[in-house]
Design a protein around this nucleic acid. Structure first.
Length: 264
DNA sequence: ATGGTAGTCCGACTA
């Protein structure tokens, strides 16, 4: 089974590219983030026509997460916890998580809050959100350690200095701060390991490149998109790739797709 | 030179 995650930065603005990528990549399950649309705006029919079941969760033009599957899509849930933190005024639980069971794997498509700036309310929200995710993950594996769970998506954290093109540039930025890295490590300590890194070692291996400043051609990116697998899932991983090619050309997302190959 | 890109719905917000 092939499982992918991709922050598409609007599914409608680049539907042709997304459809073409899904078709040629021979993926069984795809988690999308930043679809940037409401449920009724999601182009479900286009994905159905190429053989995928669709689940989408979007409340506005912001955020939005989806799952595409050709190996079943059951027990869809839009919240990993009954107390996912809300944000804004009025405070709302944003569309940042969507879970479903696909081919025996519990897959969560996750779009972790950006954080915006150290000390910003959005930063505290990000840390809280990640702690609730850790608590949920701990509970799932506590109930059944053999469960196959994949926490995938845009985590908006670069876990080590090797995961940014120049640590000095990010010295007082979000994504690299000690509390954010601790929140990521807490997920790892809860039993969810980065299954891609062993197959895509650094340095200079990234999943995101800012649109500005010619960051992509200069190879100045960040590694912030992950597939974190429970022990039973991690044991099945036979390979992984970051599709840097898809970041090229007109109309690309600023994130590359990440693909994991699982043994049957 | 406070610049540079791209998405949403239409001046501003988000990343």
């Amino acid at each position: 089974m092939r499982l992918a995650t991709w922050n598409v930065n609007s599914v409608r603005a680049r539907l042709d590219r997304v459809l073409a990528w899904v078709e040629r990549s021979d993926v069984d399950v795809v988690a999308l983030q930043e679809t940037k649309c409401k449920d009724e705006q999601f182009p479900e029919q286009a994905f159905a026509e190429i053989g995928y079941q669709v689940a989408h969760h979007g409340l506005s033009q912001w955020n939005g997460v989806a799952l595409l599957s050709r190996v079943g899509l059951d027990d869809v849930s839009t919240a990993f916890s009954p107390d996912v933190p809300a944000f804004g005024d009025p405070a709302v639980v944003e569309a940042r998580a969507l879970g479903a069971t696909c081919g025996g794997v519990r897959v969560w498509s996750l779009y972790v809050p950006n954080g915006r700036a150290l000390g910003d309310p959005h930063y505290d929200y990000k840390l809280q959100w990640l702690d609730r995710l850790r608590a949920a993950g701990t509970q799932w594996l506590g109930e059944d350690p053999a469960r196959q769970v994949a926490l995938v998506g845009d985590f908006n954290i670069a876990p080590t200095d090797e995961d940014v093109w120049d640590p000095a540039v990010f010295a007082s930025s979000t994504h690299v701060s000690a509390p954010e890295r601790a929140a990521f490590q807490a997920l790892v300590d809860a039993g969810f390991t980065d299954v891609v890194r062993p197959h895509a070692p650094g340095p200079g291996v990234f999943t995101y490149w800012d649109y500005t400043q010619l960051r992509f051609p200069k190879r100045q990116g960040m590694r912030i998109d992950f597939v974190l697998g429970s022990p039973a899932l991690a044991a099945r991983v036979t390979g992984a790739t970051i599709d840097r090619q898809e970041r090229k050309g007109k109309g690309a997302s600023d994130h590359a797709p990440v693909i994991v190959e699982l043994a049957d």
